[in-house]
């Protein structure tokens, strides 16, 4: 047997991280959930190369990346649409690609969307930390972002992948529509704040990152000043810091926080949020209906 197969990073791109399904279940220790931002893209890429859903993929950010495997490997690129080449020759996006040993797999800049997921048969096999190989940019857990010349171990490929004949390919949204359920702290805001959130035009801010989708638009007025005592935060929480501009919490969000959460975005909508470029219009679809509260005295 030769040495353990690796991927050598030829060009890391602006920000490429290792991602999997993250570290849910450790929020009570202050550990963020982390994991792939466009989860359907991560799962599809793994499926295309015959991996389990838990196998680690590479998540690029806008600018792509290039890697060189030490042994022949099947790869697949999903998520943001981009050019894919193997030693300069065009290769398909959204389909299994055979990369010969020593060849360079290049993922081009995202033509639309933000993040590509790149799966390799066997998965990116860096050592897991607390059960996950994900890079957590908030807490620093997991491997550091890819750097030129870094070597990442590859796992052993599984059985041949089942053929996929219809690849779902959601185009990144022209307008990002996020369904929001009000609460838990909508009562911390001025009476018109939910209506503002629902009716106003927001845009994705250039400061959006893996921690949160920051937005720009009309600030939401508070009815109460100050901070809440620290409380648990969920994925998709729309937290409103003192500047009044809503931030939608993504995978690397802090597990607790003190700014009020006016509503929570439905989890299926977060993959599109991960692909919305800065400047993309955002509409918050605030769902009305019964807001269930129990207040029995005890």
């Amino acid at each position: 047997m030769s040495a353990r197969p690796t991927l050598t990073v030829v060009a890391p791109g602006p920000l490429t991280t290792v991602q999997d399904l993250g570290r849910p279940g450790l929020a009570h220790l202050g550990v963020p959930r982390s994991g792939a931002l466009d989860r359907p893209a991560h799962l599809l890429a793994n499926r295309l190369v015959g991996n389990a859903p838990t196998a680690a993929t590479l998540e690029t950010t806008l600018g792509g990346c290039a890697v060189r495997p030490s042994r022949a490997v099947t790869a697949a690129v999903t998520g943001a649409f981009c050019a894919v080449t193997v030693d300069g020759a065009p290769a398909p996006w959204g389909a299994p690609v055979r990369v010969p040993a020593g060849a360079v797999l290049a993922i081009g800049p995202a033509g639309s969307g933000v993040r590509c997921h790149v799966a390799f048969a066997g998965g990116v096999a860096v050592d897991p930390v607390l059960g996950s190989r994900a890079t957590d940019l908030l807490s620093g857990l997991g491997p550091p972002p890819l750097a030129e010349g870094a070597e990442l171990p590859l796992g052993a490929p599984g059985p041949r992948p089942a053929p996929a004949d219809a690849i779902p390919h959601p185009a990144p949204p022209a307008t990002l529509v996020l369904r929001v359920r009000p609460g838990p702290r909508d009562d911390w805001f001025a009476p018109g704040a939910l209506a503002t959130l629902a009716g106003a035009r927001y845009r994705v801010s250039p400061a959006a990152n893996r921690i949160g989708l920051r937005t720009e638009g009309p600030p939401l007025d508070r009815a109460r000043d100050g901070e809440l005592p620290s409380e648990g935060m969920v994925l998709g929480a729309v937290q409103v810091p003192p500047d009044g501009l809503p931030v939608v919490f993504l995978a690397d969000h802090p597990p607790t926080g003190g700014y009020p959460v006016i509503g929570v975005v439905a989890e299926p909508d977060l993959a599109a949020a991960a692909q919305a470029r800065p400047g993309t219009p955002v509409r918050f679809l605030v769902r009305g209906g019964a807001i269930h509260r129990t207040a029995p005295g005890r």
């Binding site: 005592p229 620290s230 607790t256 129990t294």
Partner: peptide, 27 residues
């Protein structure tokens, strides 16, 4: 459940299949 997160004056219970049912049972 996925996460049980105590904080200053709250407990967050995340990843619950039927939150309304749990909310009714808690008291």
């Amino acid at each position: 459940v996925t996460d049980i997160v105590p904080a200053a004056r709250t407990v967050l219970i995340d990843g619950v299949a039927d939150p309304a049912r749990l909310a009714a049972a808690l008291p």
